Computed example of a mutant assay.
Amino acid sequence: MVPGQEKQVSKLRRPFVVVGAVVGAVLSGWYLYDSFGRRSISADPIWTRFVNVALIMFVAIFLANLVRRGVESFTKR
């Protein structure tokens, strides 16, 4: 990349990240609902729930970004 040029941003980037965030929020909500519903010895502590929600969100957005790259490479051919 030449120093004077700006990096080109894909038009599909924002929609895929938004969809990944929505999917992550839905999965996190389901996880928390299921986790708070268990009132037994196997219930997760609060810090574990926090870490799991963060991991779910990260993975959902990361996978959405990977799918976007696959779609872009497929449409360029």
Rank of each mutant, 00 (worst) to 15 (best):
M1Q: 02
M1L: 08
V2W: 10
V2A: 15
P3G: 04
P3Q: 04
G4K: 13
G4V: 13
G4E: 15
Q5I: 09
Q5F: 11
Q5G: 04
Q5P: 01
K7I: 15
K7P: 12
Q8Y: 01
Q8A: 13
Q8G: 02
V9P: 00
V9T: 14
S10I: 04
S10P: 05
K11L: 15
L12H: 07
L12C: 05
R13I: 00
R13Q: 07
R13A: 07
R14N: 12
P15L: 11
P15Y: 12
P15A: 11
F16G: 07
F16E: 03
F16K: 07
V17I: 12
V17A: 12
V18G: 02
V19S: 07
V19E: 06
G20R: 10
A21I: 03
V22M: 06
V23D: 04
V23G: 03
V23Y: 03
G24L: 03
V26G: 02
V26I: 14
L27V: 07
L27F: 11
S28E: 03
G29N: 06
G29P: 06
W30P: 00
Y31Q: 01
Y31T: 01
Y31D: 00
L32P: 03
L32I: 13
Y33H: 14
D34L: 08
D34G: 09
S35E: 11
F36N: 07
G37V: 12
G37K: 05
R39M: 15
R39Y: 10
R39C: 10
S42M: 09
A43V: 12
P45G: 06
P45I: 02
P45T: 03
I46R: 08
I46T: 08
W47H: 13
W47I: 11
W47P: 10
W47M: 11
W47D: 12
T48K: 13
T48W: 11
T48F: 10
R49L: 10
R49Q: 14
R49T: 09
R49C: 14
R49W: 03
R49D: 14
F50L: 11
V51N: 01
V51R: 02
V51A: 09
V51E: 03
N52V: 09
N52I: 02
V53I: 09
V53T: 06
V53H: 02
V53S: 02
V53M: 03
A54Y: 02
A54V: 02
A54T: 00
L55A: 05
L55T: 00
L55G: 05
L55Y: 01
L55D: 01
L55E: 02
L55R: 03
M57P: 01
M57Y: 00
M57E: 05
F58M: 07
V59P: 02
I61S: 01
F62W: 15
F62I: 00
F62Y: 14
L63Y: 05
L63E: 09
A64L: 05
A64M: 05
A64H: 06
N65Y: 14
L66V: 12
L66W: 11
V67Q: 13
V67E: 08
V67G: 05
V67I: 15
V67N: 07
V67C: 13
R68K: 15
G70A: 12
V71T: 01
E72I: 02
S73L: 09
S73V: 06
S73K: 13
S73G: 04
F74T: 04
F74M: 10
T75R: 14
T75Q: 14
T75P: 00
T75I: 12
K76L: 08
K76Y: 04
K76G: 03
